[in-house]
Amino acid sequence: MAPFSVMSDKNERRWYVIQTYAGYENKVKANLEQRIATMGMEDKIFRVLVPTEERVYVKDGKHKKVKRKVFPGYVLVEMILDDQSWYVVRHTPGVTGFVGAGNSPIPLSEREVQEIFAKIGKEQMKPKVEIDLKPGDVVRVKSGPFEGQAGTVVEVVPEKGKVKFSVTLFGRETIVEADYNDLTKL
């Protein structure tokens, strides 16, 4: 029996956040989906989501795509909250509790849900790029009009996949922008 009695407003579907053991988010998702099916809760618990984003790491000119959890240790559940659905979710192996005040789960606001879906939706379309360069590092251009030139990194622009660095052209320091793929760290 749940420690509280909750009746959702007009049996409204809402998104709730549950806490899990770190690193067990996907296992909790699988366990919960299995419990929903075996306990016949499809009419009260609809979706279980572990928000992830794809990142591209560039190191020594090699790309590596990695999926990372947006909220490590948390899983999102779309459900109609009542005593029975609360019990099924709360007693799923790996679940440590709902996010909320005491034993009362607090649903995400519509704005929060839209922000999360916008973030993970956008991330699925275009992965973030991370590179092991920072301002002050020295790089050499591998290809393009400045091939062979070496310079000092001034700015890293991960959103565009670009690096701005300083090179000497015609005896003057000039800021040049190049793609991550065209550079080698020295």
Rank of each mutant, 00 (worst) to 15 (best):
D60Q: 09
Q34S: 12
Y74H: 04
L32P: 03
D43V: 04
G121D: 05
Q84V: 06
E12K: 11
V99A: 07
D43H: 12
N103W: 05
T38K: 06
D60S: 13
L108A: 06
M41S: 06
N103P: 04
E12G: 08
K65N: 13
F71K: 04
E53H: 10
L133I: 01
V129P: 10
M7Q: 08
I116C: 03
E115G: 11
K128W: 15
V113E: 14
G102N: 15
E115A: 14
H63Y: 10
S85I: 02
V56M: 14
R68M: 12
R68I: 10
A118K: 09
K44M: 08
L76R: 05
Y16P: 03
P107R: 02
V89T: 01
V113M: 15
L32F: 09
V50D: 00
N103M: 06
V58D: 01
D83C: 14
K64L: 13
S8C: 03
W86T: 01
F98I: 01
K122R: 09
A37M: 05
L81M: 13
V17M: 13
M79G: 07
D82A: 11
G97D: 02
G23V: 14
I36L: 02
R14P: 00
K128G: 15
K122N: 05
V28Q: 00
V28W: 00
V89E: 00
D83R: 15
E123Y: 06
P72G: 07
V77F: 06
K128A: 15
K10Q: 14
E42S: 11
V66P: 03
E33M: 10
L81N: 08
K134Q: 14
V95K: 02
P93I: 05
L49E: 01
K69D: 05
N26C: 06
N26G: 08
L81G: 05
M125E: 08
K134V: 09
V89F: 00
V50E: 00
N11Q: 09
Q19S: 14
F46Q: 11
D9I: 03
W86A: 03
K65L: 12
K65D: 13
F98L: 02
I36E: 01
V89Y: 00
H91P: 03
G136H: 14
I45F: 14
E33N: 12
V17N: 09
G73I: 09
M41W: 05
N103H: 06
P93A: 06
K122C: 04
E12Q: 12
V89S: 00
V70E: 02
V28K: 00
M41G: 05
I131T: 15
E53C: 07
